[in-house]
Computed example of a mutant assay.
Amino acid sequence: MNVRQQALSNPVGLWWRMLTLVSGANIVFWFLLYRQFHDRVPEAAGTSSSQTGAMLLLSAAYVFGCAFRSVLPRADVQRICLVDSFLSSVLVGRSVATVAELCFAAQWAIILGQLGHVAGAETAVNATLVILPLIVIAELCSWYAVLTTNFLFNAIENSLWAVTFLIVGIGLGRLLPEFDGLVFWLLVVGIVGIACYLAFLVVIDVPMYLSRWRAGLLKGSRYLHPLEGLRDTATRWIVTHEFDHWKDEIAWMSLYFSAAVWASLALCALSSFDDHLLRYRAQAAVATPARLTPLHALPLDHAPPQPQADSL
């Protein structure tokens, strides 16, 4: 019996199979989106077509990156994996994850900017300025955690993700009264999803990493020097199918490789609405001007007409 068959015979193997099937379905759905939109991207002129093409590429990086990590699962700091291969090493897996996560963050920045400009909502537009910088810092913390095996920086990383998506949620909330119809309900789904994600981070994920960090302190664990850790990430991986080794990873990986990928695909589809977003503007928002120009600021040719004296 080979390694794959052995893995599929226990609970971890069933979970692994589920991840693989979901990732395969996600790839199929991405290709359906690509087929739907790619014909009009080169033919149509303007910003909207190039933006849709960019969103397709960013989504591809995230969808295929998560599929790669689903087929070859690993836990970075613990150096555990399910497949005995260099592709299961933390060096490879973390590199793929970094590119994918930066692309996912860029998708959120693009969609918030797109909707914010259409709605004239400065809160949403300004939120786009901090999304990528925060995630870049989070990725640096993640790399420091896996190189040194210090779980504290995983906690900081996920705290930064929480702050980022709190800002995204505020931006989406500001857009909520500006749209109706399908876009309104997509915004509602996005806000609810972000609220659930934040609850998971605050209640489960960040405390898990903090408890691991405290346990390491009590044991007197030695942290690796970053250069020593870089070599370790490329040369050491521990193959294990024991449920006890994976039980704390199953929840976040399952959500990450399913719901988060669906969000990426949904953002890609929503971006393609660009030419039709005005249809979904709330009537009250359209009727109320975002900003009134004072009379003294009007040009001379727009000055109000002066009353004329009655002719005799």
Rank of each mutant, 00 (worst) to 15 (best):
R4K: 04
Q6K: 05
A7K: 02
S9N: 05
L19R: 02
T20R: 05
V22Q: 01
A25Q: 12
A25G: 12
I27H: 01
I27M: 02
V28H: 08
V28Q: 10
F31N: 03
L32K: 10
Y34E: 07
R35A: 05
R35H: 09
Q36W: 13
F37K: 04
D39T: 15
D39M: 15
R40K: 13
A44C: 07
G46T: 01
T47W: 13
S50H: 12
Q51H: 13
T52D: 08
G53D: 10
G53Y: 01
M55F: 06
L56H: 05
S59V: 09
A60S: 09
Y62K: 01
F64L: 07
F64D: 00
F68H: 06
F68T: 05
S70K: 00
S70I: 00
V71A: 04
I80C: 02
C81W: 08
C81F: 02
V83T: 02
S89T: 14
L91M: 11
V92E: 07
S95E: 10
S95G: 13
T98M: 03
A100Q: 02
A100E: 09
C103H: 03
A106R: 08
I111S: 06
L112W: 04
G120E: 06
T123F: 08
V125W: 09
N126M: 13
I131Y: 00
P133L: 01
P133A: 00
I137D: 13
A145N: 09
V146H: 07
L147S: 03
N150E: 08
F151N: 15
L152K: 14
F153S: 02
A155M: 06
I156L: 11
S159R: 10
W161D: 13
A162C: 15
A162S: 15
T164M: 12
V168S: 10
I170D: 05
I170A: 08
G173R: 04
G173M: 12
G181E: 11
F184W: 15
W185V: 10
L186G: 04
L186C: 12
L187C: 11
V188E: 10
I191M: 01
V192T: 02
I194N: 03
A195C: 02
Y197S: 09
A199N: 09
L201E: 13
V202Q: 15
V202K: 12
M208P: 09
S211F: 11
W213A: 06
R214Q: 15
G220I: 04
S221H: 13
L227Q: 14
L227A: 14
R231S: 06
T233R: 02
R236K: 15
I238M: 05
V239G: 04
W246L: 00
A251G: 12
A251S: 14
A251T: 15
M253F: 05
M253P: 01
S254Y: 09
L255I: 11
A260H: 10
V261E: 07
V261A: 10
A266H: 03
C268S: 10
C268K: 02
A269F: 12
A269P: 09
F273M: 13
D275Y: 06
H276Y: 14
L278Q: 14
A282L: 07
Q283H: 07
Q283M: 07
A285D: 07
T288Q: 08
T288C: 08
P289G: 07
P289E: 06
R291M: 05
L292F: 11
L292I: 10
T293R: 01
P294T: 06
P294I: 03
L295S: 12
H296W: 15
L298N: 10
P299D: 04
P307V: 12
